[in-house]
Structure formats: structure tokens, C-alpha cells
Design a binder for these strands. Structure first.
Length: 256
DNA sequence: ATGACTGAGCATCTCAGA
């Protein structure tokens, strides 16, 4: 099985990029974040003609997640279980496909909205940890993937790109990411490339792509039995060099 | 010294992204 995650920064601006990428790579599942539209405006028909069925959870202007699949699936949750009922931010889809639970997340950035915005990020991460612990306790094969908005270690961002006060690297964010790892999940990319510069995002500003001043914030986490089947895991840097690209590239994982 | 974005929206600025 081949699965990818990709923050597209507006599906309406990136529809042709996604279409071309699906034709080239042909993954079984593609998890999208920041579709930036309501579910009814998601271009599902475009992807259906390529053999992919779609589920989208969206809202106007911000956030939004979707899953494209060419294998049968069943949607289990349209929001992160445990969050307040009135939380309307479109950041989570959980489904079952290929005998595994697939969780697609767009984790809050945490840099806007002051301390309240950062507190929301941390609460969201606490809630995610509860959810993943429940899946692992039940021995459910699970993949937790998406835009985590966390650089797990200092090796996961280019020197000088972020101040220590940034929500992507603050100790509180990293501690919660580590809790996910310590609970038994495997970071697929780092399992195969334990050290060195691996990035999934390059800012549009200041020539970040040209200087390779990137961040590694898009992750694929695997439950133990799926981690044993890990064959490949790598960001597709090619996409960042395309015309009018997203600031994130796809991360592709292959399981035997 | 360096370089100076992108997308959405009740829009021609503001907010968010990271």
C-alpha cells in the first residue's frame, strides 16, 4: 500500500498539481490539508475520473482536510473525538481502509491568536494523544498522518528559519509530539533516515526554497505492526519546484 | 549584504500561514 499526505494550500489553486501528481505517482490514498474550501466546493469529480473517491471536511477560507482513495473506505469520524462540540475547525478525518485506521490531521499552527491560540494547539495535541492511545490500546493498525505543525527536533528545520519562541518548535509542542512517539508510534521518515536535512515545507518568502531553508512538519506515524511493514518514506521535493506550488510537498510512504 | 510571499474574502486591507 502506498499512502501520501500533502498540505496543498488551497485545492482550488492546486487542483492541476494534485491531478498531475496522482497520475504520476498513483498512490492508493492521498491525505490533503488546507483545502481552504467548503466540502461542497471540493473538486471531487476531477479526482473520480482518475479513479479516486473522496471525503472532504471543509470550511470557508481556512483549514479543511480531504482524503482521496482508490481503495474502498469507510469514514468513522469527521472531527477529532474529544474536542468540544462547538469546535467548528475542519482539521480531522478518520476512516478505515485496507484493514487500517487512517487519520488525516491538520494540526493547529499555534502562532496566531496569542497565548489562547497556542493553548488551543496544545489542547488539540492532548486530544489527539488520547485518540491515538485508544487506537493503540485496541491493537488497531493505524496511520496518523498530516500537517503536524511541529518540528520534532532541531534537525527538523534549517538553522535560522525559526526563533525558539515559535509554536512549531516550542518545548510544549515538542513534548506532545514526543508523547505520540513514546506511546508506540513510529515516525516513518525518520525510521529510514534517522539524521540529516529532510524538509517538507519551504516558505514562499526570502528565497527559502532556493536556499533549502525548510522545515519538516508533515509527518506519517505508524502503529507497531504497520511500522514493521515500512518499505519507503520520503518527501517528494520535485513538487516544490513546479510552477505556483504549494509551500508544502507530498510525503509518500510505502508499506509491504 | 543578503530578500522582500501566497490565498481567501460581505476585499482594494486584513488575517492566517509557519
Amino acid at each position: 500500500m502506498r499512502l501520501a499526505t500533502w498540505n496543498v494550500n488551497s485545492i482550488r489553486q492546486r487542483e492541476r498539481h494534485v491531478r498531475r501528481w496522482l497520475e504520476r505517482v498513483q498512490p492508493d490514498l492521498l491525505l490533503l490539508q488546507e483545502i481552504k474550501c467548503e466540502a461542497g466546493n471540493f473538486p471531487a469529480e476531477t479526482f473520480r475520473t482518475l479513479g479516486y473517491e473522496t471525503v472532504a471536511v471543509g470550511q470557508k477560507a481556512y483549514n479543511g482536510v480531504a482524503v482521496l482513495s482508490r481503495v474502498p473506505f469507510a469514514v468513522h469520524h469527521h472531527a477529532l473525538p474529544g474536542l468540544p462540540e462547538d469546535d467548528a475547525q475542519a482539521r480531522y478525518i478518520e476512516l478505515e481502509a485496507g484493514g487500517a485506521t487512517i487519520v488525516n490531521i491538520y494540526l493547529p499552527n499555534g502562532n496566531s491568536g496569542g497565548e489562547a491560540g497556542f493553548a488551543y494547539k496544545l489542547a488539540w495535541m492532548d486530544c489527539l494523544a488520547e485518540r491515538t492511545a485508544a487506537l493503540l490500546d485496541a491493537d488497531t493498525p493505524a496511520i496518523i498522518a498530516g500537517d503536524f505543525n511541529v518540528c520534532p527536533t532541531d534537525e527538523d528545520f534549517a538553522p535560522g528559519t525559526l526563533p525558539a519562541t515559535d509554536a512549531l518548535v516550542r518545548p510544549e509542542s515538542r513534548a506532545r509530539y514526543r508523547r505520540l512517539i513514546w506511546s508506540g508510534l513510529t515516525d516513518a521518515v525518520r525510521a529510514l533516515q534517522p539524521a540529516g536535512r529532510v524538509y517538507t515545507f519551504w516558505d514562499y518568502q526570502a528565497g527559502a526554497w532556493r536556499r533549502n531553508a525548510g522545515l519538516r512538519i508533515d509527518h506519517v506515524l505508524l502503529s507497531p505492526t504497520l511500522a514493521e511493514r515500512l518499505v519507503a518514506a520520503e518527501p517528494d521535493r520535485h513538487e516544490r519546484g513546479e510552477d505556483q506550488p504549494s509551500d508544502h510537498v507530498p510525503v509518500l510512504v510505502e508499506l509491504s
